[in-house]
Write a protein that binds this DNA or RNA. Structure first.
Lengths: 205, 205
DNA sequence: GCCCGCCTACAACTTTTGATGGATGCGGGT
DNA sequence: ACCCGCATCCATCAAAAGTTGTAGGCGGGC
């Protein structure tokens, strides 16, 4: 019997997953409402497959939780189950070792099927997700440095260079430098175009 | 007995709602996976409360479906159940006559409670939502003219004033004029801040 | 008819942003 | 130890963007 744990901060989703999975003969042995709770539970009870939501409010995010779960001895398979296919975290999740990536609008059968496959050690990706993965491999998402991303997100919130400089405690010239690098990496030549491009490629939400 | 219909394009969510509601003695007599389906079903079966998701992929959106459902003779109460409290559609939904607005991360009890209240004809808003409603009433969403919005959305896509002027076949000076008006209405003083503010208040997708 | 909001347009001026080129320091690899 | 790449930082100058004020034509509402 495959033992499943569901991790999601929405009670409704947890109940839905439990209902769908148990209707197909799978055994939901635990529910966690946060990444932290998932990690804590996993060390105290044997589980074969973990269904993990990516966007969870407080604390550890889904990717980090995935990493922690897979860090223990004889880890379960972790299936990411999320709402968005545009998410930039797809890559991070797969890199973290997730056994699969499903969308919440998936039909119940494919959900159940995915759990079974994961339990057998297979990798399972939603078609849409797989597609995005390969397109992103072809035109790799330019990786911004920590500082660059920090600056860019402030820009996205409408801050001026002067404001950003003040907040980050650097000179305005420095902020401009970071921006120039961002522009080059994204292939644009203005701050507004930069946030548009970053949004497009999921670097910015 | 209160008869409930759940409308959501995610099977998982539908199953979750059904499970939670039925565990509390409510009767889920129908499920719809789209706004159109909800409208079609409602005319053929008596229902007391409709739980309606706002963001549904194809076709009619939640607000429109709400309007249509409430248009029939002796309509059910419509409870909006959605993921985001930032949603600009909150206002539209309430205007459309929704009996309440809940967030998907609500605890099961408050969900069940809300359905009962709605069935009794009461209005029920999640605290967070109520808060946003009043703040938005206090500072009403500034309405942009057609041209202003047109310019602003090009800005949001990263276009320069020159490019916008070319595309809209007007002079650059005109574009600047429109932008000045947008800035005043939104209470900001830069294009990036304008798109941030417009996003915040839902003027821009 | 008259007022008002919208779209259009221009000029002149200030501020912000972007371009260019160069400097420092840290960490990885050989 | 040395070099290289990269993130970080800075200054100067040119180019957009934003400010202010003004104005004609056009449509709808009173």
């Amino acid at each position: 019997m495959t033992r499943v744990m569901v991790t999601d901060d929405h009670p409704v989703v947890r109940a839905g997953l439990r209902a769908l999975l148990e209707a197909s003969g799978l055994e939901v042995v635990a529910e966690a409402s946060s990444g932290a709770e998932a990690v804590a539970l996993i060390s105290r009870m044997p589980v074969d497959v973990v269904l993990m939501d990516l966007q969870m409010g407080e604390g550890i995010d889904g990717v980090e939780a995935t990493r922690l779960v897979l860090d223990r001895p004889s880890p379960p398979a972790v299936l990411i189950l999320t709402t968005y296919d545009t998410d930039a975290d797809i890559l991070r999740a797969v890199e973290a070792g997730a056994a699969g990536y499903l969308l919440k609008d998936a039909p119940p059968e494919s959900l159940v099927d995915a759990v079974h496959r994961a339990a057998r050690g297979e990798t399972v990706l939603a078609p849409l997700v797989a597609q995005r993965l390969v397109t992103r491999m072809r035109s790799p998402a330019p990786s911004l440095s920590g500082r660059e991303l920090e600056v860019l997100s402030q820009v996205a919130e409408g801050a001026s260079n002067r404001q950003i400089a003040k907040r980050l405690v650097v000179s305005e010239a420095t902020v401009k430098s970071h921006l120039v690098h961002v522009f080059t990496k994204l292939g644009v030549d203005s701050r507004t175009a930069a946030v548009a491009a970053a949004r497009e490629s999921g670097l910015l939400r």
